[in-house]
Structure formats: C-alpha cells, structure tokens
Amino acid sequence: MLYAFGFERLGVVVSDLYFVDPDPLPGQETAERGVRLELRIFERGELTGTIYAARPITIERPLWRVDLLQDADAPPNTLDRAHHHPNFNGWDPGPRVFVSELSSDPLAWLTRHLADPESLSKETAASLDDISAPDMQSLRAATPEIVDTVCRRRLKNEPSPAGEK
C-alpha cells in the first residue's frame, strides 16, 4: 500500500515495507518489515492536452526518510530496527541513524520531526529554501493525520478508513 500526501511542492509518501538487507549490520541479518515514510519534492508538469487535461504530477527526490522497521520474526510493535536517514546523496540514502526514542516512542518522535520542517531541513543536507511558507504550514497541519491515519494503522496492521489493508 502506498499513500501520498502532496501539498504545493512538498509531500510525504508512506508505504508498507518488507526488506531483506543485502549488507546487514551485525545481528540484523533477518528480513525486516514495517512502514517507510519519506519527505519528498513534488513537481507539477505542463498540461499536455486541452485545458481540461489532467496535469502530470511527479513525486521527485527524497529529502528525509524514516523506516519504522522491526525484525520480521519479532512480535508486533517491537520496532527494534527503527531508524531514519537524515541525508540523501541524490536518490540514495545516507547511513541508517538509530535514535532510542524512535524505537521506544516512534509516533511521538515522527510527529515532532515531521511537524517542524524548518528544523528538519537544518538537521539534513536538504534545502527547503524553494518551499513556500504555506507549503510548510500545510505539512504541519497534515502531520497528525499522516501519523495517525497512516503510520499508526499500518504499524498495527489495521484497515484504513476506506477499509483496505
């Protein structure tokens, strides 16, 4: 399942994830499962047809990633492999950064970071200089819905409000 929350140029994508790391850290050789959230740039394309045509919208480069992961064989909500990637080199993430609060209280940590994009841009190598203040405000306002409706439900494997799993 993939969810996308797009604002003017800034957006968030959230997806379920099952991952086998080809180069795992010691003690993390088993598969991982959970939820991936990425802060991304969204781009609007030019109209390619009549004035009634749908406008192309692409989900572009990642700025920041949070992986709420755990050992695939662990009991639910272990989140023993939850981490974030504060930096990207183009499309490739930098190293995993493990933060104890991210494993112990992931939704509070995620809410605090996602709702403060200005501080997040200082923590990362990503520049948000070309992102408008209203776009930042839209992200702040949507953060509770993104975290609660998507991340909390996906971690608990609950159906979304539309009923899908």
Rank of each mutant, 00 (worst) to 15 (best):
L114A: 00
V97L: 13
E118I: 11
L120V: 07
P95V: 13
S100N: 10
D116N: 14
A108C: 02
D92N: 08
S104H: 07
L120N: 06
P117A: 04
E118D: 09
L110Y: 05
A115C: 03
G94V: 12
P95C: 08
L114H: 01
H113E: 03
P106T: 06
D105H: 12
V97Q: 14
D92I: 11
W109E: 00
A115T: 03
L114Y: 00
L120I: 06
H113M: 01
S100I: 04
D116R: 08
H113K: 06
L107H: 03
V99S: 10
F98H: 12
H113I: 01
S103A: 11
N89T: 14
V97G: 01
D105I: 08
R96G: 13
L120K: 03
F98W: 11
W109D: 02
W91E: 13
N89K: 15
R96T: 11
L110H: 04
D105Y: 09
L107Q: 07
R112T: 12
G90Q: 15
L114F: 00
H113L: 04
V97D: 09
F98S: 09
D92W: 08
L107T: 08
D116I: 09
L120A: 09
P93C: 08
L120Q: 06
D116C: 02
P95E: 13
T111W: 01
